[in-house]
Every structure is written in structure tokens, then in C-alpha cells.
């Protein structure tokens, strides 16, 4: 109950932020030269001014910017994201088609980074300043310093071209026509390299945070108390240290959800994944304002949802957080 109240209050606080993001995005996009109709006409191979005017009226681009913004926001209240002139479909449909690869990629990269960051961080902290710590910390630094697009390309060269273990790109193999379990395994195989590429940098961050956090908690008095009670070292770490040490990691997930979504644009481009990131890039090129705004809206919702989960998790982990404070 206490946790739910806290989370709901945080959710309410994020609504004005969402509104500001959308308005800012809308106005910024007006600064870019050309609009949807220009892009459409270019694709059609040109046309006369009358046709352009007709199209502008059809897509509601003939009124002032303020009126367009107002129209967009009032439609948004009914969860209507508008129509994409470029794709000839409602924006909601376009986005829903592109959402699964991105969400799968984010969930797998986040889980990978969190799990291995935790394990490696704990290992490094338990052997602090000895060779396992040095090895893990150095690897972490290398992962952190490597640009993800370069890592992605090198992974393709090594694992796809040279060793031929994994596919170089795409979300699934359309030539095989898999169904059921086989289709899931096929998608999983396609996601291995993108997950590693997107996740490694976050793994490096999590492992540094976890190592530092473990070392700090290990030096606290209650750890000595736990040892004085005669607990085994494993139990001291598992029951007393881990939960306290995980708090900064959990905070970090919420903070980096947006960064991760940004990173997935690069990774989706490198691995030709039909995800939200690629869609955003294409929408910018094609001046597809409605789609772009829809992506911003959905991305913001995604980040808010992740932060909502993180808040609940954090409150569960730390009983000192209360709805009152």
C-alpha cells in the first residue's frame, strides 16, 4: 500500500514532464526546413503547388503552428497518435509493429548488464586489489571505453563473417518460415550480438558501481555484527551486504533507461533491426512529424514505466523509503 502510493505519486509527477517533452519536440521540429508534404512530393517525383496545397489541407498542415499543436494534444488525450503520411497507416499501428524488437533488445541488454554487472562487481569486491579484481576492473574499463557501433561491427566481422556462428543482422530469418519455439530461438539467435553490443557499456557501468557499493557496505558496522553472530562469509554477503549494495544499481537503471533507448538507435542501425530506433531515424529524414512525435511519446512512456518499476523495486528493497518522505 505504502509502496503503491509512492509509485502513483511519482507517476502523477511525470505527466507534466511528458507534456513539456512533446511540446518542445513539436516546436523544435518546426525549425527543420521542409515538411511531410515536401518529403512526399519528393518521393512522388515532384508535383505542382495546387497538389501540395491540397495535401497540406488533407494532413492538417495548412493552419498555424499553435493550432496544429493544440489539435495534436487534444487528439492525444484520446490516445490517438494521428496518421502517418509516409507509411499510409495510423501512427499507433506503425509504432506497434516496430516496438517488439526494441523492447526485446532493451530487456535482454538490461538483464544481461544487470546480472553480469552484479556478479562481476561482487567477485571484484570480494578479491579487492588482487588479480581477479584487477582483471575484472580492466575489462570493465575496456568495455566502457569502446564505442558500441565499433564493437557491433567487429562482432559482426568475427562471429558472423569469419566464424559464421551468428546472423549478422535482422530480427528473424524470413526465408525459413519458423513457427512456435523454433521462431523464438531464431529471434534469440538474432538478438545475441545486438544485446552484447548494447549491454556491454552498461555492464561496465554496473560492475563499477556494484564493486564500489559492495566495498562501502562491507566496511559498515552491521557487517561486523553479522560476523560476530557467527554467520558464514557467504551468508554475510548474501543476506546482509547484497541487498544494501544493490540500491545504487537499481537507481541507476531508472536513470539510464533513456540512455539505453538512445543507444538502441545505433545498435538497431548496425544490426538492421526493424525497431523503434530505426523508425525514429527514418522519420526524421522523411519529416514524418506525426510518427516522430508518436515515437517520442511512446519512448517517454517506456522510460516512465521503467522508472515506475524501479521506484517500486527500490521501496521494496529499502524500508526506510516511505510515501511520507
Amino acid at each position: 500500500m505504502r509502496i503503491l502510493r509512492l509509485a502513483l505519486r511519482r507517476l502523477a509527477a511525470s505527466l507534466p514532464t511528458l507534456l513539456l517533452i512533446l511540446m518542445g519536440m513539436f516546436l523544435l521540429l518546426q525549425l527543420a526546413p521542409g515538411d511531410t508534404v515536401d518529403a512526399l512530393m519528393a518521393q512522388m517525383g515532384g508535383g505542382d503547388a495546387a497538389l501540395a496545397e491540397e495535401l497540406r489541407r488533407f494532413y492538417g498542415l495548412d493552419v498555424g503552428i499553435a493550432a496544429q499543436l493544440w489539435r495534436y494534444l487534444t487528439r492525444l488525450v484520446t490516445l490517438d497518435l494521428g496518421f502517418s503520411a509516409i507509411y499510409g497507416k495510423p501512427v499507433a499501428t506503425v509504432i506497434l509493429e516496430r516496438l517488439p524488437p526494441t523492447i526485446l533488445l532493451m530487456v535482454s541488454a538490461l538483464s544481461f548488464a544487470f546480472f553480469f554487472g552484479l556478479v562481476l562487481g561482487v567477485l571484484a569486491a570480494r578479491r579487492v586489489n588482487r588479480w581477479p579484481d584487477t582483471l575484472i576492473s580492466t575489462l570493465g574499463l575496456v568495455f566502457y571505453a569502446t564505442p558500441s557501433f565499433w564493437f557491433g561491427l567487429m562482432a559482426i566481422v568475427l562471429f558472423s563473417v569469419y566464424l559464421q556462428w551468428l546472423p549478422a543482422g535482422g530480427f528473424y530469418d524470413i526465408t525459413m518460415g519458423y513457427t512456435g519455439i523454433a521462431a523464438m530461438l531464431d529471434i534469440a539467435r538474432h538478438l545475441v550480438l545486438p544485446t552484447l553490443t548494447l549491454g556491454l557499456i552498461f555492464l561496465a557501468i554496473y560492475l563499477r558501481i556494484m564493486r564500489a557499493s559492495m566495498l562501502e557496505v562491507l566496511s559498515l558496522d552491521f557487517v561486523r555484527t553479522a560476523r560476530a553472530k557467527g554467520l558464514t562469509e557467504t551468508r554475510v554477503v548474501a543476506r546482509h551486504v547484497l541487498r544494501n549494495a544493490m540500491l545504487p544499481m537499481v537507481t541507476l537503471i531508472g536513470l539510464q533507461a533513456g540512455t539505453m533507448l538512445g543507444g538502441s538507435v545505433v545498435v538497431e542501425s548496425v544490426f538492421a533491426l526493424p525497431g523503434l530506433g530505426r523508425l525514429a531515424y527514418e522519420s526524421v529524414v522523411q519529416r514524418d512529424l506525426n510518427t516522430l512525435l508518436g515515437i517520442v511519446f511512446v519512448s517517454a512512456l517506456l522510460v516512465i514505466a521503467i522508472n515506475f518499476v524501479v521506484d517500486i523495486l527500490y521501496a521494496r528493497l529499502d524500508p526506510r523509503i516511505s510515501a511520507e518522505s
Partner: peptide, 25 residues
Amino acid sequence: LRALRGRHLAMVFQDPQATLNPVLT
């Protein structure tokens, strides 16, 4: 030594604020 600690040989520490784990009941 661990098997002895807490069972035959116990300790109470100075600062009760810091010696209990804040996230466990």
C-alpha cells in the same frame, strides 16, 4: 572460530544506529 562466535562468545557493539542492518527486519 566462526562456529564459536555468536554461540559461546558474543559481542555487543557501540553504536546501535550502525550495527543493525537497515534493510532487514
